[in-house]
């Protein structure tokens, strides 16, 4: 959206003006135009975006931990390089996303503080541990696969900076997903021990991956409004079904099974039926009682706190430098 709004300025608009702005905003969303940072937007739209983008950014940086857990032990140099590159990408995704949130007026420091104090969340999936090398593959195939299913529609999200960040992120995520699949394929074609390692990882990651799409539609707190704003394009259950339908033939190609005895093709629906999800586990992990909640947030806080003196030094150095430059410009001693 590029419309310059009448009376768009620093002063708070009056009621009539707000109504006019709202009408322009609504029309832009209805016409599938992008909302840009300088455009007027409803406060609740801004808050929803900040919440969602922040949660996504936090998930990228917390999500580095379970995979970084295996960088030092990767079993070949090729795998080590791929994993390092993937974890680096995730840090990069965090950077794009914090920048997207910044365009809405919320800085990275504020968001990190909310993460560190538990006032904002990250994806619960990262509260599960990576116990074997095969978990790196399962995360790539299932967790990144689920993330892509969720994120591809966000490339058409109504907020421009978020949509553009997602286009870059999705390109890299699809590489991540393929490396995970290929890692598992190598294991399932390998020795008995390797194949068992791959099956065990898929058994542990399958259900948590299905939970990544969020609660069922009738229990999802934020869904309806987000759909209306075109921040969200498909319902949780719709995306979950799409993911299951994609994974079933892929699991067959891998020669691995999915841990759900009720999983079968339903000719009538044209989709796979699957068993009930244990939402009590999801709620427990969300509340902080997952296997790694404490570990993940403690490591994040420790990294931040241990780095405080470094960031402070950089800021002080930059300050000294800026003074020198200003001094030089003013003809004072540099």
């Amino acid at each position: 959206m590029t419309t310059v709004l009448p009376g768009h300025g620093p002063e708070a608009p009056g009621e009539a003006e707000t109504e006019a702005f709202q009408a322009v905003f609504d029309a832009a969303v209805a016409a599938d135009e992008r909302i840009e940072p300088r455009d007027w937007m409803p406060d609740a739209y801004r808050a929803t975006l900040v919440r969602q983008i922040a949660q996504h950014a936090h998930s990228e940086i917390i999500g580095m931990q379970p995979e970084a857990n295996w960088i030092s032990r990767a079993p070949s140099l090729r795998r080590k390089a791929i994993l390092l590159a993937k974890v680096q990408d995730e840090a990069g995704h965090g950077l794009y996303l914090y920048s997207a949130a910044e365009t809405l007026g919320t800085g990275r420091d504020e968001l990190l503080d909310k993460l560190h104090t538990g006032r904002q969340k990250y994806s619960s999936i990262f509260n599960y541990p990576t116990l074997t090398w095969a978990d790196v593959g399962a995360i790539g195939w299932l967790v990144d696969g689920a993330a892509i299913t969720n994120q591809v529609p966000l490339c058409r999200c109504s907020y421009g900076p978020y949509a553009r960040a997602m286009i870059r992120i999705c390109k890299e995520e699809s590489f991540h997903q393929r490396q995970g699949y290929e890692l598992l394929l190598a294991l399932s074609r390998g020795t008995e021990a390797q194949k068992a390692m791959a099956q065990d990882a898929v058994d542990r990651w399958w259900w948590p991956s299905l939970m990544m799409f969020g609660p069922p539609d009738d229990e999802s707190a934020h869904s309806a409004q987000s759909m209306a704003w075109k921040i969200k394009r498909h319902s949780n259950d719709e995306l979950r079904q799409r993911f299951v339908d994609i994974c079933v033939p892929q699991a067959e190609s891998l020669g691995l099974t999915l841990p759900d005895p009720e999983l079968r093709w339903n000719e009538e629906r044209g989709h796979h039926d699957f068993g009930p999800i244990d939402w009590s586990e999801f709620q427990q992990v969300l509340k902080g009682n997952g296997p790694c909640n404490e570990q993940r947030i403690s490591q994040r806080r420790a990294a931040h706190e241990n780095g405080a003196w470094v960031r402070e030094a950089a800021a002080v150095y930059a300050g000294k430098h800026a003074t020198e430059h200003t001094g030089a410009r003013n003809g004072e001693a540099a």
Partner: peptide, 22 residues
Amino acid sequence: LGEWAGHAPELEEEVALANIAL
């Protein structure tokens, strides 16, 4: 350098240190 992943003092350094390691 790979040991720094997830422990760097800021996000830009996560990227830089991993890049050098790569």
